[in-house]
Design a protein around this nucleic acid. Structure first.
Lengths: 198, 198, 198, 198
DNA sequence: AATGAATGAGAATTCATTCAT
DNA sequence: AATGAATGAATTCTCATTCAT
């Protein structure tokens, strides 16, 4: 798909970014070695500096690329608040599934962004914000119970999302859609057999 | 309490461990510097090697200390399965609160163990195991709904626990008991206003 | 004057020499960067090597160009020895002024040649030689006092010339002719109010 | 003389400073290699950083050491202005000789300070200031001719001082006292046989 | 129980220079 | 006449670790 012709240099840069994502994902920022990044692409170290000012720069370029994809993704998700009410649970579940899919589509990048960058927390906060706003909306229209602590629920939701993302990235053991469904079910309905609100 | 007389050497070792926990917590394993660890305790670098074989050794000693406290703690929690049924939700909530308190009692150590060590995942898995076994028990006796996906629920519960632990450690902004209560509530009862199981 | 048509290549070469003079003058040989030299002329690095074998080569070409101008200049100055005696002081002063002007006409080149090249000392020695020979001549004909130490005087004269050249190059604050006059005056008549030779 | 017992570390530091002065004197700041500095003292590179923060730091320590010696030296020289008038020429000559001797006492350091540091010009300016103030004083009391251009003379004097210092440092060929005498003679009495002020 | 002095191994980065086009 | 892409060779600096005392 992305097969617009790239000049040799642009190609090399892409390959360096890929290699860096892998290296950063595996070892974290500080332990990642430029020598590894370049040798995985059959390049010498000085060539690296043809494309990036320094180690920090390639790292930030990765993060920035991730952000450029994540933020619009999140913003689109706000639209869930405009759906017909009876579809909402399913819509959230589908949204969740999409997020998982997005994260799984470039596991190295996701890992770097969430677990090896200082901006990781910022990304989480953005998502928590988003969930809180959705929850709040549906609480107002009565779809979500009034006794729910929105902030805690939103943060809890993202905590689960985060956790299962991590699992998906590390092991390909699970079917993403099923996972989204099961997590949603747990989160929507709670665990108790009969409701006896506190 | 821990005021059994320590020889000077033992005392120095304890101070090194404390200092190391702080340094590892703040910077992670690789970025942590022996020079910082010792200078915070007014010691020279060679002295460090009087007490620990190397950087890895003091790190493992911290982790091992954490494990020695965590595992029994977790094992005791299994007892929740023996409680009278109607107290269970509250019991879980109390257990959660205790865990939070334990983690908050030595934030540096907790941070190192969970977020800077390879064993962090192991600790999480132990806790997930525990929750799964508790949930399973109560599902069998009908306290927990039969449609719940135990594994997902257990992992989700620990994900939340993990997240809020992180928040507690970083910022002292919240009342732990309240947080435990709100998280439990969310988790037990879900978010929807009326139950319409999928 | 130099507007004989230059082929594009010759023009580029001239521009590189100019740019190099500036860069060498500002940073010295070792700190000067080829990358700066070429980028100031909107050229790429490989192009540099179309015109010069290496960094050393362009540097030597600058020095050699300077020498080609300086030596004849100096040789012409020997003619002062053939002047009518009563004009000599003024002639020397005029010669000095011309030298200053010559050096000021291409400050970058002068700076490189005198202060950033190993040949700088050679240039000074040539000028000292010249002054010594002039002084000697006039000492023989009685215009210069017999008690003067020719070598020291010649070297001292060039030392001053050197210093004021440096000032002129760095700051355009002074009127060159006036400076030449004041320096000559100092040098010809000494500083004391009444002569009481030692 | 300086044989107060130095600890091994202090000794090593001194030896590094010596070695650095030599290296900087021979090659200038940028071309000087830490590897050379340490290997001349049979040390490894990391040891260097035990004593100095970086290359810049050892350089500045040399310059600062030079300044600490030069400034008081210069200040003492102001006292020439308080001497009986008929001794002045000789006194200046003696002062000059002392300066030469001081510079010659640590040629490497002098070379670094004057010819390889950005502060070199500052040192020259201080000395020019000093000479100007002395000249001015003696012009006021009639010892120095009123037609002299003080600033130019002072700068010219230091230019000569500078030049002969350079010669002394590079080659041991001359007797310092004689040189001081000859330079003073040239400077005090000028070069012309009979005075015919312009 | 502790320190002064030193080092081996390695990392990022810079720069003149070349090759193929 | 000029460039895109790449590299070899250095160099500074950091850090865990050791040796001798």
């Amino acid at each position: 798909m992305n097969s617009i012709k790239l000049s040799k240099g642009e190609l090399t840069k892409q390959r360096l970014l890929q290699s860096a994502a892998k290296e950063f994902a595996e070892r974290g920022y500080h332990e990642a070695k430029i020598s590894t990044i370049v040798s995985n692409v059959n390049l010498t170290q000085p060539s690296f500096y043809l494309y990036f000012k320094n180690k920090e720069a390639i790292f930030q370029e990765l993060i920035s690329h991730f952000r450029k994809q994540l933020i619009p993704f999140v913003e689109r998700t706000y639209d869930i608040a405009k759906m017909p009410h009876d579809e909402v649970p399913q819509r959230i579940q589908i949204g969740l599934s999409h997020l998982f899919q997005f994260f799984a589509s470039d596991p190295n990048l996701t890992k770097v962004a969430f677990y090896h960058s200082e901006q990781g927390e910022e990304f989480r906060l953005v998502m928590i914000e988003m969930m809180a706003s959705i929850f709040k909306h549906y609480q107002e229209v009565g779809l979500i119970r009034s006794s729910l602590f929105i902030e805690v629920a939103a943060e809890g939701f993202i905590a689960m999302l985060d956790r299962f993302t991590y699992r998906i990235i590390l092991t390909n053991e699970r079917d993403i859609d099923t996972l989204a469904k099961q997590m949603s079910d747990t989160f929507f309905y709670g665990i108790l057999a009969e409701r006896k609100q506190n």
